[in-house]
Design a protein around this nucleic acid. Structure first.
Length: 458
RNA sequence: GGCUGGGUGGCAGAAUGGUCAUGCUGCGGACUGCAAAUCCGCCUACGCCGGUUCGAUUCCGGCCUCAGCCUCCA
């Protein structure tokens, strides 16, 4: 049985899908107007990990994660770059998917785009107006927060007690200060769609209510996203969807809310307003995606993750040692992989990836020191378990730099021959000098009883 | 002001009412001409004050403190 923490109930309990054979999960995806940052990546990797774990237990899992391709930030960005909206969104959607793939994130089963669901949003807004949960004012449509009796059940805050020191945007034509926009008018130079309220575009929250219901039906099992979306985004989604259906129970929309913690940079939350953004695109230039993924999984998903260069390098070292164990036992053939029970137990306990990783590292250590017979079992378990985390999917020799390609190979091998001869001649000064030269070429020498091996230092 | 979630050894980071997390680093050793890689061993911890208990890092209460949300944000 899989245990999961539910933000809605603030406790951890056994996960039971509505349909025992089919788990339905929706995650709020990125707004595509710029490169994905490491915080976006954490959400994508954590959700990918959740889905991998669910798939190991349930027959059928449908994972939906949207692309927000209509938003004022996109409009601004298009203006600034003098490009069409569609050029911006198509470009960054593609880059997002490519970057996430580098981190071992498998594509969602569906990736709905907000602009493809405008009619669904309009229909939902109409339902809300009909149910007296929304009203038209000043060419806008607003959701009326007091229409939702259970408003605040996800975030633990009521609209009222927020007002004191809060910075809520006050518009004169709102009936309640907490009311928020469902539909707003568009100028000629802004993207707009025909609607019963004139040409306009949707507000931020309605798209997820519309897309999740359209793709998965209600109620679905898990709604995921970054912790900063709890309020107001997810709170407002619940309010909209519940008021549209007339069922005010918050879990009549999504049964379980799964939120990941933030990525911190030097002790501060990475955020657009602070400008301390670290892009995945830049990281993958210099580091293997697998190391970035493992670093993102090195803390429990609900905890904040302090991202540092040291974390990434330490993780890489740790990963290298696991690949060493596999390389050392390359001659051991296994028929099929196997997932270690301890690893599975850790993951089934609210996706405890740090604990799972500690068991995987132990398996690598056991493999490295085992005799050939034991090694077979450890190797099968190491690969099977690591693969469930999206790790150890590369060729060990290649990962470690032993695969000897490149135009300098013959030069390198000649230098190594010369060095070996120098060693035979006990001319260690010459041998060490050759090793220095090789090191400067990015080549590391490893002497062993069976001869000298070399690898590219990476 | 309201609402969340934290405070663990040099760093990262889990579990747990009484025994080991784990990784990286550091130190000692083995191996090696020296390296590299590998192996063996070792050190350092549970924010503060009370309470419950035979026993608390773990449960309860108070305090201090950090981070986040209440504005775009994963």
């Amino acid at each position: 049985m899989i245990q999961l923490y539910n933000t809605l109930t603030r406790d951890k309990s056994s996960f039971q899908p509505v349909d025992p054979d089919h788990v339905k999960i929706y995650a709020c995806g990125p707004t595509v107007y710029d490169y994905a940052h490491i915080g976006n990546a954490r959400m994508a990797v954590v959700c990918d990990q959740l889905v991998r774990v669910l798939r190991s237990y349930f027959h059928h899992v449908t994972y939906v994660s949207n692309i927000t391709d209509v938003d004022d930030k996109i409009i601004d960005s298009a203006k600034k770059k003098n490009l069409k909206i569609e050029q911006i969104t198509a470009r960054y959607t593609k880059i997002y998917n490519e970057d996430m793939k580098c981190l071992g994130v498998k594509a969602p089963d569906m990736q709905p785009k907000a602009t493809e669901y405008i009619p669904n949003m309009i229909a939902m807004i109409s339902r809300l107006i009909a149910n007296n949960a929304a009203y038209v004012a000043n060419s806008h449509v607003f959701f009326h927060v007091p229409a939702m009796p259970n408003y605040g059940s996800l975030s633990g805050r009521t609209g009222q007690d927020q007002l004191a020191g809060a910075r809520v945007e006050v518009m004169d034509f709102k009936r309640d200060p907490n009311d928020f926009v469902l539909w707003k008018p568009s100028d000629a130079d802004q993207p707009g769609w025909e609607s019963p309220w004139g040409v306009g575009r949707p507000g931020w929250h309605i798209e997820c209510s519309a897309m999740s219901e359209s793709t998965l039906g209600l109620p679905f099992d898990i709604h995921a996203g970054g912790g900063d979306l709890i309020f107001p985004h997810h709170e407002n989604e619940i309010a909209q969807s519940c008021c549209a259906s007339g069922n005010f129970a918050p879990d009549s929309y999504a049964k379980l809310w799964f939120h990941n913690g933030f990525v911190m940079l030097s002790g501060e939350k990475m955020s657009k307003s602070l400008g301390n953004i670290l892009l995945v695109h830049d990281l993958i230039e210099q580091h293997p995606g697998e190391a970035i993924r493992m670093a993102l999984l090195s803390a429990h998903y609900r905890q904040p993750l302090n991202w540092t260069q040291k974390l990434l390098l330490d993780t890489k070292t740790s990963l290298d040692r696991m690949y060493r164990a596999l390389e050392k036992t390359a001659h051991i053939l296994i028929e099929k992989t196997e997932i270690d029970q301890k690893v599975l137990d850790a993951l089934y306990d609210d996706i405890n990836t740090p604990l799972a990783l500690s068991h995987i590292k132990q398996l690598a250590k056991s493999l490295a020191t085992a005799n050939d017979e034991e090694a077979k079992i450890f190797k099968a378990k190491l690969i099977g378990s690591a693969n469930l985390l999206g790790l150890l999917e590369n060729d060990p020799a290649q990962w470690l730099g032993f695969s000897q390609e490149g135009d300098k190979t013959s030069i390198i091998e000649q230098m190594i021959k010369d060095r070996d001869q120098a060693r035979v001649d006990k001319d260690f000064a010459r041998a060490d000098k050759l090793r220095e030269q090789l090191y400067d070429m990015g080549v590391v020498i490893e002497d062993s009883p069976s001869g000298t091996k070399w690898r590219y230092d990476n």
